[in-house]
Design a protein around this nucleic acid. Structure first.
Lengths: 249, 249
DNA sequence: GCACTAAATTGATCCAGCTCATTTTAGTGC
DNA sequence: GCACTAAAATGAGCTGGATCAATTTAGTGC
């Protein structure tokens, strides 16, 4: 494990055995919507889940696949991407341990309308939708919690619509950086490092713009000493100023 | 009621008394997420609701107001608008009888992050969030149904993000027209009339573009005989072609 | 039928951001 | 330390759609 690493990102180096039954129960209790369950209840729910390890860059499911499972990130990061007919991609969400993904209420004929791809090595739990529906029916607090999270995501999504409709690229990117900093940031000698492989392309797909434009904006931010960045990583040096930029009229 | 009406839109002409207790119970059973309840259960739930009549153009609540109620459209149309700092508006959703709005899981300190405004005369039912939470806990099928609808809205919202990020204005507008046609369309001698006051500004706020551009696009569609339109109304004459335009590569 | 008004249209100009093409560089493996 | 490669940066030119300004028109009230 003494290979030279220049990236400031800490590697997960998740081995297969890290994604085992042992880890599951412990982690499942950390998932927001299972937090209110008792140990016994948790153990029951846990039995319905299976764990899988994915390497960096693997596809978990593809847009258009039949939606049969609900999944939960236990370790690592997952990105949800929606692909256009002509191959452009839109990055819908970046997930963290504890986040669920897949359609919680899909019927037997529904398909995923996005592709899920690991952004690091990752450990993912899956439960069959049928079983999850059972859990929801049995534990109202779980249902409430899932509804909570989904509503929150809807609100975020609507905010993004607003930004795409009304803000110029610079502000959109500034806002995205601040959001990512809040969600994935880790204080560090370089500043607030976004602990996540994050390319210009990823940012562009989040901001709804081209990589070139993203690169130009990032260069400007770097010149103004608001960020530092290298390949696939970004650290925020001046969050207040970025926030100001994203919100100024 | 024999006033001259040139608009092809049928007016609701909803009087106050149309929005009364009498109407409530009947309508409440039509709301998707109460469909599975028995008559007795429905009556109980019904007691928690209060009915209000709003005239065309009234504001039901404002972005930033404390979120205390969940609301359901019984009659008429409601639009959800998000306002920018500098007064631009984004039309988030157009609601129909049966649709709920307001934040179903808001905590005691949450605020609405959009403004709700009637687009016609309207009858609206309200339930206190606390009471609604009770209903959800008591009836898992209601919780499931609300989750269902919220998930569906999230998916729609994400599709819109994709369109804003990747499609040119013409295709976005074509797609919006088809969607509105499917949701609010009524066959008519003019074609598929969108039964809803719908200005160029409304369309522009949905498509994330300017009224002028929207007007130009609509003029082109009219020249190509895809639509007919007047003030605040649009009828679709060739849906297949609009659909083709919205999806072509 | 006529006058009135807000909605819609149309015109002209401009620029933010896209596209295409090329060069530079950060990070890795050896 | 050096070579290699994919990511990032940069340049130049072009265009979709915004903006500003003026005109037309649909629908209503009288």
């Amino acid at each position: 494990m003494s290979q030279k690493r220049e990236t400031p990102l800490s590697s997960l180096s998740l081995e297969g055995h890290h994604c085992s039954v042992d880890l599951r129960l412990e982690k499942l209790g950390m998932v927001p919507f299972f937090q209110d369950l008792s140990e016994e209840q948790l153990r029951q729910v846990n039995n319905k889940f299976t764990a899988h390890h994915f390497s960096n860059g693997e596809t978990i499911y593809r847009q258009g696949d039949l939606s049969t499972m609900l999944r939960v990130v236990v370790a690592g990061n997952v990105k949800l991407i929606s692909h256009t007919l002509k191959g452009e991609s839109v990055l819908l969400d970046m997930l963290q341990p504890g986040d669920f993904f897949g359609n919680p209420t899909a019927g037997s004929k529904d398909v995923y309308n996005e592709t899920a791809e690991t952004q690091t090595d990752a450990c993912i739990l899956s439960i069959r939708l049928h079983d999850f529906r059972g859990v929801i029916n049995q534990y109202p607090t779980v249902a409430m919690s899932v509804l909570d999270i989904t509503t929150e995501r809807l609100n975020e999504s609507r905010q993004r619509i607003q930004h795409l409709s009304t803000l110029p690229v610079t502000k959109r990117i500034a806002h995205i950086l601040v959001t990512l900093g809040n969600k994935f940031g880790e204080e560090n000698r370089r500043g607030l490092l976004i602990q996540l492989p994050l390319s210009r392309k990823d940012l562009a797909d989040m901001a709804g713009t081209s990589t070139e434009t993203t690169s130009r904006v990032m260069s400007r931010f770097q010149d103004d000493d608001l960020i530092t960045s290298g390949r696939q990583w970004v650290a925020i040096k001046n969050k207040p100023e970025l926030l100001r930029i994203s919100a100024e009229s």
